[in-house]
Nucleic acid binder design. Structure first.
Length: 136
DNA sequence: GCCAACGTTGGC
DNA sequence: GCCAACGTTGGC
């Protein structure tokens, strides 16, 4: 099983909306590297849900329910989406500052490539963030 | 609202 | 195929 971090701007698509929807397709990815990451996702993979811009914190955990398929919002066949559903809201949100401040997370893709919207995490990084969220 | 970082585009 | 120009993103 792989681990990911997916970013969304809260005013565009927030965790609250995600919980209301129960499930959504993750669209709007228009970056090749992020697209490749989407294609690497498999059902059962876990994703951290990160609010960029406003909040700048990890707010919840999502699970991939359907592997990448053609983005229904465009005719351009090069873009894909995945289906994800919320697993749970974190007991404690983990802010960008906290992650930056932890030396164990110095290799975090989020910190190295802040503009990438779909980022691969190692299991270790994933677990560290869960720990910071009071989930372990 | 500004600015730095980075990806993409297009001219050569 | 290189590189300058431009647009977008996201942290501050």
């Amino acid at each position: 099983m792989k681990h990911w971090l997916i970013k969304s701007e809260p005013f565009k698509y927030s965790w609250e909306q995600f919980e209301k929807d129960k499930q959504t397709f993750w669209d709007g990815v228009r970056n090749y590297q992020a697209r490749n990451n989407l294609r690497d996702m498999s059902p059962g993979d876990w994703c951290l849900f990160y609010h960029s811009n406003e909040g700048k914190e990890v707010v919840g955990i999502a699970e991939v329910v359907k592997a990448a398929y053609q983005d229904p919002t465009t005719d351009n066949t090069q873009w894909v989406v995945v289906d994800v559903k919320p697993i749970k809201k974190l007991r404690k949100k983990v802010s960008l500052a906290e992650m930056k401040g932890d030396p164990r997370l110095s290799d975090l893709g989020l910190l190295k490539q802040p503009r990438l919207s779909v980022i691969a995490l190692t299991e270790t990084q994933f677990n560290i963030i869960l720990e910071m969220a009071d989930e372990q």
